[in-house]
């Protein structure tokens, strides 16, 4: 109860907080670049070898500690009960996507798991560490232990995490050099799999289906402008793009392609080289 009042009282201060933590995409990107770029935290492949495995136990004490951290840093956007309606949510976007996530919904975009599955703990850890360019600051400032505590607290907000045994996307191959031939092959894949119908022929996010896309909460959600990799919410290293394409971003309109690449996963690496070749920044 006290917390709720507190949040209301300082909602204006919170806006300042947001500006100070660098909510603009550029600031975040610069911060990431200083740490060696987005790629630094990319999941090395195969996914099983994620560096985030060294973790602390998921117990009541750590969930509770996570809650305290949440109330310090996340409540402003994600709200008192994790329902995504913090006082600052309003300033981010009113009628357009994304709104801060409602953690009680159990819907997650940035996953290394198949569409419809819950994210892995490592996925959540990565999101909290890196933040979301343009929308959410990264929390590298918190110790590894504290970031795990946040993961456990977030998980406690949705019953869908209980007994979840998410199935991972299949990772085949590793990034390949962006030779002209690979980029050309990637272009063919982009055409064949009709990414252009949403993202546009030149990747500008202006395909014929772009205009009407919405997220699961009914807010307008345009396809990403693929020429601006620093705006990619899920990261722009090849391993990140592999996750985006195969898993899709559940809750938004970006669909999962893992079924269609089954047996020809190598083509994803060409497609990634093509996307990178579009970069105009």
């Amino acid at each position: 109860m006290k917390i709720r009042k507190h949040v209301q009282r300082i909602s204006r201060t919170a806006l300042t907080f947001i500006l100070a933590t660098g909510m603009s995409g550029t600031v975040i990107t610069t911060a990431l670049a200083a740490e060696g770029g987005m790629g630094a935290d990319a999941i090395p492949l195969p996914i099983e070898l994620s560096p985030f495995k060294q973790r602390i136990p998921e117990n009541a004490a750590n969930v509770e500690a996570g809650r305290a951290l949440y109330e310090r840093s996340c409540i402003w956007c994600h709200g008192v009960n994790g329902e995504g309606k913090g006082p600052v949510a309003y300033f981010l976007s009113r009628d357009t996507a994304p709104h801060p996530r409602d953690f009680t919904s159990g819907i997650y975009k940035f996953r290394s798991t198949l569409s419809g599955e819950m994210p892995t703990d490592e996925d959540l850890f990565r999101t909290i560490t890196r933040g979301i360019p343009g929308f959410m600051p990264g929390f590298r400032g918190y110790s590894t232990e504290d970031r795990w505590r946040l993961v456990y607290y977030i998980k406690s907000l949705s019953p869908d995490f209980k007994d979840a045994e998410p199935e991972l996307i299949k990772v085949v191959g590793t990034p390949i050099p962006p030779t002209a031939a690979s980029v050309q092959r990637g272009y063919q894949v982009y055409q064949k799999f009709k990414c252009w119908e949403c993202h546009g022929g030149g990747g500008a996010g202006n395909g014929k289906k772009a205009g009407t896309l919405k997220d699961d909460w009914g807010f307008r959600l345009p396809p990403r402008d693929l020429r601006r990799p620093s705006s990619f919410k899920n990261g722009n290293a090849p391993a990140d793009l592999y996750r985006t394409i195969m898993a899709g971003l559940d809750g938004g309109a970006m669909p999962s392609y893992s079924d269609f690449f089954e047996g020809s996963e190598q083509e994803v690496w060409d497609l990634i080289n093509y996307i990178n070749s579009l970069a105009a920044e």
Partner: peptide, 24 residues
């Protein structure tokens, strides 16, 4: 012969179950 994506939602709260691209 055009792109569809089949987006399945579960229950009255319409939680995303799957969102799959059907390009072919």
């Amino acid at each position: 012969p055009i792109l569809h994506n089949t987006h399945l939602y579960h229950g009255p709260k319409k939680k995303t179950m799957y969102n799959i691209a059907l390009p072919l």
